Amino acid sequence: MKRRDALRLIGATVPALALRPGSLFAAEDTFKLAIGQRGNWENSVCELGQNAGIFKKHGVTLELLYTEGGGQTQQAVIAGSADIGIGVGTYGVMGAAAKGAPLKIIGSSMTGAHDLYWYAKTDGGIATIKEAAGKTVAYSTNGSSTNLVVLGLQKTLGIKFNPTATGSPSSTFTQVMSGQIDVGWASPPFGVKDVDGGRIKIVARGSDVPEFADQSVRVMIANARSFEGKADAYGRFMKGYREALDWLYADPAALDAYAAWAGADAALAKKVRDEFYPKQNLQPDKVNGLDKLMVDAVTYKYLPAPLDAGQLTKLVVAGTGPLAP
């Protein structure tokens, strides 16, 4: 091949490489993420996946901010200070979208609520959640999945609490142990050692609300303007997310990485993953139970009326178009 022809071939090849996601020369897209509750398994996917180089393979860089809960996460995305929010209560997202907030649901974060639990001091006089009628019962922030579960527990049990926003698991624990709150909330690994050590007693779980079992109680959201400006890049983000999720369940090194990240020992890390977070519950590409979620969102006054088909199509883009697996 003549030198001139070889140079012409290189000139034609380099631009093609530069456009190929994950290639050596690919320009990376940066996403700002707001994520509720650093430390729990579900919320580890992005940071641990990035640390392992998985998102970089797909031409994506993540800037991570951890929040006190789903309500704060959602507000960051609405304001545009975050492109993507992870682990946001679905009722709150639908309610905000109905009011015109620029949101897209790009994936399911969690189906079911088995990971969440409520506890009281062992010597505090509350042995079951039924004994908390009229007492303060914690949730993280307004519109969060913990808020949803507290409302669901009231409905399921037919009793009334005094639902109280308490922020993160650590701030909630302080309020419970100091007597400011009667029943706190947490998500593993937080508090598991205190349960095993007898300081606190689990009095309810998210799974005590049967209707949540097949519903996406938490979702991944995007700022609509950001999404519409680079939908293909969001598709690559979702490819990285799926790969990182698979890695967390398949590679023993991932479990070690989670233990170090969460400040847990190996046995606790494995217990958190296997007992509280079945992999199928974290699958992102379908938002489950939307019809029932909308009915409850109306009941709990997050929505004035169920979203119509057009509104749903505009809001929920998970698993479609560039986000398809």
Rank of each mutant, 00 (worst) to 15 (best):
Q37P: 00
G36N: 09
D29N: 11
L48T: 09
D29W: 01
F31C: 04
A52N: 02
A26G: 05
E47H: 12
Q50A: 14
V45Q: 12
G39L: 04
G36A: 15
C46K: 03
A34C: 12
I35L: 10
K56L: 10
I54K: 09
V45P: 11
N43A: 14
S23R: 05
A27I: 07
F55Y: 13
K56S: 12
W41Y: 13
K32I: 11
A52F: 00
L24W: 14
I54Q: 10
I54L: 15
L24N: 09
G39M: 04
R38D: 00
G59F: 00
N51M: 13
K57W: 05
E42I: 08
W41F: 15
K56I: 07
P21Y: 06
E42G: 15
F31V: 04
V45A: 13
A26W: 09
G36E: 07
H58N: 07
R38F: 02
R38Q: 10
L24Q: 13
P21C: 05
L48Q: 08
F31G: 05
R38M: 08
N40W: 02
Q50Y: 02
N51S: 13
L48D: 11
G49R: 11
F31Q: 02
A27P: 10
I54N: 07
S44W: 00
P21E: 05
G22W: 08
L48A: 06
F55K: 02
G59T: 03
G36F: 02
G22P: 00
